[in-house]
Design a protein around this nucleic acid. Sequence first.
DNA 1: ATTTATTTTTAGACAAATCTAAAAATATTT
DNA 2: AAATATTTTTAGATTTGTCTAAAAATAAAT
Lengths: 218, 218
Amino acid sequence: MLTHSEENYLKVIYHLSQTEDGGISTNAIAQKIDTKASSVTDMIKKLKEKKLITHQKYQGVFITALGLQTAKMIIRKHRLWEVFLVDKLNFNWDEVHDVAEELEHIKSEKLINALDAFLGYPKEDPHGDPIPNAKGEIPYREKELLTETEENNNYMCVGVKDTSAAFLQYLDRQKIALGSTFMVLKHENFDHSVTILFQENELTLSKVVAHNLFVKKI
Amino acid sequence: MLTHSEENYLKVIYHLSQTEDGGISTNAIAQKIDTKASSVTDMIKKLKEKKLITHQKYQGVFITALGLQTAKMIIRKHRLWEVFLVDKLNFNWDEVHDVAEELEHIKSEKLINALDAFLGYPKEDPHGDPIPNAKGEIPYREKELLTETEENNNYMCVGVKDTSAAFLQYLDRQKIALGSTFMVLKHENFDHSVTILFQENELTLSKVVAHNLFVKKI
DNA sequence: ATTTATTTTTAGACAAATCTAAAAATATTT
DNA sequence: AAATATTTTTAGATTTGTCTAAAAATAAAT
């Protein structure tokens, strides 16, 4: 049985493991959790003790198979709760993160599986991130960043990389939501902005925006 | 902002205040929380510091107006989550307590009010306990213990005093649920058992059972 | 009204999760 | 390859919530 704090660390280590190849550094974890490196070192000992990660001094952290499975179950809970908040309680997608961050620590397998069924076994959360099933399997969905797209092709928005309220609210103002479709007109070499044809209007998205929007060719 | 532990203590103090007249003793709290009197003394200092209770050494604890309102909001959350678990996730009424005990600490007013609306502003939880509204008002419902009833009158089961899984499962086996109706046939002087006519059968309930069933004359 | 019993509080300790400051190990630079 | 910089760990302190054991206050009983 893990504490809230242990679960938070494990989740961050899992996410970092997705993009990093080697071990995860103490500093990388500290930065994500917004804590001091010394606190991370302490927590590493606890997670290692519980066989969720491997670690040797001054080398990075590696997540174990047990850690991986455990992390996926936490992420499963987080994302299912997000779906609940949006689909059932009419939260906006920029309002769900903090509450889901609390709800993900509720310990009841029956609860989360019943919630999954109640929601109709959703495959993705409100930000387009995949929801692990009860076994920990993560559904794959084709997607690429808007920055990687080809001109004169049609795409559908299927996810966001940055899930900050600021970015999501920006998308709201542009009327861009998951499921929105558009044609990519032009990649601007100069500033890497992307101009799209969306709802009969030309819309230019900055490099930062384009680099945080996941799309799929249609 | 209160910790989980502070909220648990406050809730217990609230419940004890409902039945006790004078101040709530350290020991009474310790027994309910299943902890040591010294731990209670420590926590009393914290709750007093936060103006949720008043207390002077060796005298009992009294809950303040602020403490009362805070406690009601915790109970509101607990009971609304119980309704959610039973109505939406098909939990049985004997399975909801522990999970609701965790869920009640989730801190989001928006969440709880949205949940309330989603559930259709229920007045009572699955055990027949009243749910405080967003203002903290508690709907009153007429009820009495089965032990207090009159023979040859009809009653409806409207609540349980003991919410333990053991008692609730006993009621399940007898097919007694909230809303069940029956006629009280006989109060046995000898052992204070109560015989009722329920679903065309005579059923004798022990004093313990009868003393934990809330009913309403119909 | 003393003595005895119970309750409550205090004092000191411990585990969990954090911090600061300093030491140790590793990386980087010239 | 030595000097410098960065990262990581250790050591010791703090806060929260708990505990045990002893002291203090209150309640009960003879």
